[in-house]
Each structure stands twice: as C-alpha cells, then as structure tokens.
Amino acid sequence: MESIFSLVLAKANYAAYIILMMIGLYAMIAKNNLIKKIVGMSIFQTAVILFYVSIGCKKGATIPILRHHGHPEPVGHAAENAGAHAMDAAHGAEKVVAHAVDAAHNAVHVADYINPLPHVLMLTAIVVGVATLGVALALAIRVYNTYGTLEEDEINQQLRSG
C-alpha cells in the first residue's frame, strides 16, 4: 500500500499530463464545433507545457533566481579574495574561516536551483500559443461568416451540396 501510494505520488504529474492530453486530443478529434476544437488545442498545448515544467522540477530546490547581495560579484573574484585572505593567516583563524564561509556562500550549487531550461522553452511557447489561438479564432470567424455555422458536419453538408 505504501509503495503504491509513493508511486502514484511520484508519477502524479505525468498521469495528470496524460489525462489532460487525452482530453485535449479527444476534443480535437471527436468534437463537432470549431471553437470546441480550438479549446481542445489550447488544453493540449498546456498539457505539454505541464509535462515540460514537471521534468524540470527538483526536490528541495528553490526558484531559478540566484541569491545575490547588491552589486553582483563574479564567483571567481570571491574565491580569489578568500585565497588572498587565507594567505594572510597572521590575522587569526576565525577570519579565515569567515571568509571561507563567505566564498562558499557565493558559490552556486546546482542542486539548489530548479532546472531553468524547460522554463525558458515553455515561456516562449505560451506566448506563441496565444498568437496561434488568435489566428485559429480568426479562421473560425471567417468560416462562420462564410457558412453561417460552426458545426463541422453542417459545413461539410454545405460543401457537398454546393
């Protein structure tokens, strides 16, 4: 029971993405109304984006914005500074330790930040998605102005008889 629960939890996002994709694909294939098809396309798109975002997730990591204080200082410089101060050992061990901690604080650990690459890919995909949605709706309006209906079977009938 415990293992099934953890399995479901570990794959819940993928399961949700597959269900949403099935809903979107069903609307695109089987629905008769053009606006419904466009809604299905939108759902399908968002489902794929959900998949990408859940791929990039990391447990125990934070959002992909680096922690920084005031003016950004390159990591290499901080390490050099720490090294220079470490040579100046006559000033006492605490200071050295403090600087070492400082350097470690400035260094970036990969495991601390969520994978940013899927976010970048999907950010542009969303905006392009709304642009394609606009084009699809413009086509639907044109179809309605020409045939007077949005139902696919009625449009087919008019095409056959006309």
């Binding site: 992909p64 680096l66 950004p72 390159p74 990591v75 970036v108 990969v110 930040y113």
Partner: peptide
C-alpha cells in the same frame, strides 16, 4: 552550466 555560469557571464541573477 547555465546555473553556474550565468552570474559571471551575464551578471543577471534571473537565470530564465
């Protein structure tokens, strides 16, 4: 690579 080099390459904290 992106996470570690963003700051020294571009000085932009928001990796995205």
């Amino acid at each position: 690579y992106f996470i570690q080099h963003t700051m020294e390459d571009t000085a932009v904290p928001n990796i995205v």
